[in-house]
C-alpha cells in the first residue's frame, strides 16, 4: 500500500504567504506525517526547474503561477496537489493551512499510517 514519502512546497522567500507562514505550517504537516519537507525556491535557478515541472504537471499552472503550492509525493510515484496560496490575503492562506492540519483527510491518513 502506498505511503506518503515527501512534502514539497514551491515558494519564494519574498512572498508573505510562503515565509514564514507556509514553511512553518509545512514543517508541522511533514512532522505529523513523519516525512521530510522539501522547499523549492522559484528564484533559485536549480530549484526553479523542478518547481516548474511539479506545478505544470500536477499543480495550478499559469504563465506566472501562484505560490506557495504544496505537493504530497507518495511511495508509488503519485504526486498529490494539496494547497495553493489564497491570493485574497495572507490570513486566508493561514486559515487554509489551519484547516488542512485539522482536516478529516489528514486524520485518516495518519490513522492509516499508524494502523
Amino acid at each position: 500500500m502506498a505511503e506518503p514519502k515527501r512534502l514539497t512546497i514551491v515558494l519564494a522567500p519574498w512572498c508573505p504567504h510562503c515565509e514564514p507562514l507556509s514553511v512553518t505550517e509545512g514543517n508541522r504537516l511533514a512532522r505529523r506525517l513523519k516525512i521530510p519537507l522539501r522547499l523549492l525556491d522559484i528564484d533559485h535557478a536549480a530549484q526553479e526547474k523542478e518547481a516548474d515541472r511539479l506545478v505544470r504537471r500536477y499543480g495550478d499552472s499559469a504563465p506566472d503561477y501562484l505560490i506557495p503550492q504544496v505537493f504530497l509525493e507518495w511511495s508509488d510515484g503519485r504526486v498529490q496537489h494539496l494547497l495553493t496560496g489564497f491570493s485574497e490575503e495572507v490570513p486566508r492562506t493561514a486559515r487554509a493551512w489551519a484547516d488542512l492540519l485539522r482536516s478529516a483527510w489528514l486524520r485518516t491518513l495518519i490513522r492509516g499510517a499508524s494502523g
Binding site: D60, Y65, H81, T84, L100, S103, A104, W105
Partner: peptide, 24 residues
C-alpha cells in the same frame, strides 16, 4: 494581460470541515 490571471484549485481539506464533507 494573460500572465496576470492565475489559477488555484481548492480540494476540500483546506476549506474547513463543512466544505470538506460537502466536497467529499
Amino acid at each position: 494581460r494573460r500572465r496576470d490571471l492565475r489559477l488555484a484549485r481548492r480540494h476540500g481539506p483546506e476549506l474547513g470541515a463543512e466544505a470538506e464533507r460537502y466536497l467529499a
